[in-house]
Write a protein that binds this DNA or RNA. Structure first.
Lengths: 116, 116
DNA sequence: ATCGTAAATCGCCGATCTACGATGAATATC
DNA sequence: GATATTCATCGTAGATCGGCGATTTACGAT
């Protein structure tokens, strides 16, 4: 019943705690953070680039990429010679805002929360 | 957490990513997000409070709290009648900053340097 | 037609997570 | 002492994750 309606910032209310948790789960693996940073560092790159950089098997990297794509943090363009992966910068910015909103609201103290 | 990422050849913070990933893993469960918000809403509260709020078994809640404590997001004062849990606001603020920095740096584009 | 490459998928395993009930320890209270 | 409360821990079952090799798919090139 703790549905905070008065979300201060632009962050949408609470129904997305599950959604935020899902995206954070996608981010909660060092290899995937590494992949994200690598993708962000280049315009777009293919699976093999990531494999070479990460010292993981190709199948493993493909799985990690899939996790990121499924979470909506990375966009996949399945072109034929080689697929192109690129970070979804809007999604990352939105997630950044959501996480900050969540964490900072926890920092704010017992006053700001509607939980009472 | 088995992390053998490949070459630490990159100068940027790398042990850091593992630490951030670990904290995000602690946050990547809806129940733990809920717990964090609940703790943030009160000065300090005990396990039983959370149990009543979350409709989970006491042992399960205790486990979730332990995850949050181990991740350094919640402080535990094991007093004897009842232990006190409270959010570590500094840690949350720091994590917020780290995550924002990470995500926004990914948003910045093929940046730093002559990447084209 | 055959080969090689890039990527996705499958099957498998060990490890970890989530949840629960049961048990045990420490402290009040009667 | 007996009892109740609160919490941590143990053992468990089932699900999911992380990793790999092997296979499949879809091209392009020879």
């Amino acid at each position: 019943m703790n549905i905070d309606l008065a979300s201060p910032d632009s962050a949408p209310p609470c129904g997305d705690r599950v959604a935020v948790a899902a995206k954070l789960a996608a981010l909660s693996h060092p290899a995937r953070i590494e992949i994200l940073l690598h993708l962000a560092g280049s315009e777009a790159c293919c699976c093999k680039d990531v494999v070479q950089r990460l010292d993981l098997a190709q199948s493993t990297v493909s799985q990690h990429l899939k996790v990121l794509v499924d979470a909506g943090l990375v966009r996949l363009t399945p072109e034929r010679p080689r697929s192109r992966y690129e970070v979804d910068r809007e999604a990352l910015a939105a997630l950044s805002g959501a996480v900050s909103g969540l964490l900072l609201s926890c920092c704010a103290g017992p006053h700001s929360g509607p939980a009472r």
